[in-house]
Amino acid sequence: MIGLLGSHAPAFVLVFAAISSLVFGLPFILAPEGWGRAMGWRVPRDRDLLAYYARCLGLLTLSVNAYAAWAALHRPVMLIGYFIMLTLFSASMVPLHIYGWLRGEQPWTETAEIPVWAGVFVACLLFFPSGG
């Protein structure tokens, strides 16, 4: 299973980087309160900290996606970019969302992301870069 579709790894990384930038990165930066409400979070009265952390997370998302996209286009470093994407955007998201669910600290929409991130992890394994 690992690397079964590895020859398509660069395309997978580029598509994932674009989608996660549009769904997460930019909304976190441009409309953190609106994104939070849409996901079912209670937005606190003091929104400065919320906006700050959302902008930080959004810029981190865009930075990782930009590096992953660059790495996908430069074969010698693609594996490094792929590992960053695999760990940050798939493998770590499953336990993070399970933890929030078990503690009852997140809206249902975040809990619903558990199978989504698990699916992304499986896709990452399927598209794992193959060959040299």
Rank of each mutant, 00 (worst) to 15 (best):
V122N: 09
L14K: 12
P10R: 05
G119V: 11
G36F: 04
A38S: 14
T87E: 09
G58F: 06
E105Y: 03
F127V: 04
P32A: 10
V43W: 04
G58R: 01
F89Y: 14
V15L: 10
G100A: 10
F83N: 10
G119P: 13
D48S: 06
R103L: 10
A123S: 14
E113D: 08
A118Q: 06
P95K: 12
A118Y: 13
A66I: 02
E110F: 01
M85K: 10
T87A: 13
T61W: 07
P115W: 11
I19R: 12
V15Y: 08
P95Y: 11
E33V: 10
G100Q: 10
N65S: 14
R47D: 04
S130Q: 10
A68W: 08
S63A: 14
N65G: 05
L125F: 13
S7L: 11
Y67V: 03
P27E: 05
A72K: 01
L50D: 02
L96V: 07
V64L: 06
A72R: 03
A91L: 15
W108G: 02
T61I: 01
H97D: 02
P76Y: 14
L96T: 01
F128V: 02
I80M: 10
T61D: 00
L14H: 12
G3I: 13
G81V: 09
V15K: 02
L4Y: 15
E105A: 11
S20V: 15
A72N: 01
V15W: 11
L102H: 07
F12Q: 08
H8D: 11
V120L: 03
A72L: 02
A72W: 04
M93H: 00
F121L: 15
L79K: 13
L96G: 00
L14D: 06
W70D: 00
A91G: 04
P129D: 06
P107R: 00
M78R: 12
M39G: 05
H74V: 12
W117N: 02
P76Q: 08
